[in-house]
């Protein structure tokens, strides 16, 4: 990757972080949403010992909805504040996508770590295979960041974009739930290791594929 590309991508990521530090609205929204959803899950599982499959399923549902709420904001706020046109003038579309996706990946990783700590503390469950859990979490976050960033870009100029981003992103992410749950349940002590490893590889591949085709598709719609 040439220096000019790196400069553009770094500039977009720095801009996202700076505007987030200034407003703190994204972190506050996703933080409160994650906390509320984990408390709701732990509350509804009150006095029930969760098995690996159910625990990984519930954790994935909270991850999925946190991503659907938080990540589309990256493009939606640009259009709402009228800064999208400036971005179109100063940066290449692929660099904009990569910058936004990287920022969303960082936000999603932070969210996933906080969610996991809260979830396992509140439901009183341990992780049996930490490395598998970490790989599944990173693969999940990459897939979520790639897919939801692209969906955010697709709906940014549409009417009713707030709810629309989640509505079109969730069907795209549902296959990931199958892979994520299959991997995480093994990490939480249920099922055979081989199945968990295959699911983790599937998650990482899905994330790589999404992040690879994302810039090309984004370039086709960004300036239309």
């Amino acid at each position: 990757m040439s220096n000019s590309w790196q400069r553009e991508i770094k500039a977009i990521v720095r801009k996202e972080i700076a505007s987030e530090i200034r407003t703190k609205s994204g972190l506050a929204t996703v933080g409160l949403f994650s906390l509320a959803s984990v408390v709701a899950v732990a509350f509804s599982a009150f006095n029930i010992t969760l098995g690996g499959s159910l625990a990984s399923g519930l954790l994935w549902v909270t991850l999925l909805f946190s991503a659907a709420v938080a990540l589309p904001r990256a493009f939606v706020t640009e259009e709402e504040q009228g800064t999208g046109d400036l971005l179109r003038l100063i940066a290449r579309p692929e660099a904009v996508f990569w910058g936004k996706a990287l920022y969303n990946l960082l936000l999603m990783l932070a969210t996933a770590v906080v969610l996991s700590v809260l979830f396992f503390t509140l439901v009183g469950k341990g992780i049996d295979i930490p490395w598998l859990y970490a790989v599944c979490l990173i693969g999940s976050c990459a897939s979520l960041a790639g897919t939801v960033t692209l969906c955010g870009a697709l709906v940014a100029q549409a009417s009713g974009r707030g709810a629309l981003a989640g509505a079109i992103a969730i069907p795209l992410l549902l296959p990931l739930v199958a892979l994520g749950v299959a991997g995480m349940r093994v990490a939480l002590g249920e099922g055979v290791l081989k199945g968990g490893e295959e699911a983790a590889v599937g998650l990482v591949c899905y994330g790589v594929a999404t992040l690879a085709i994302g810039p090309a598709l984004f370039a086709a719609v960004w300036k239309s």
């Binding site: 969906c151 697709l154 719609v221 239309s224």
Partner: peptide, 16 residues
């Protein structure tokens, strides 16, 4: 915009 955005979604749909 409808054509471009829905076509991009149509391509993304293929993988899942």
């Amino acid at each position: 915009k409808r054509a471009a955005n829905s076509a991009a979604y149509g391509v993304v749909m293929a993988l899942p």
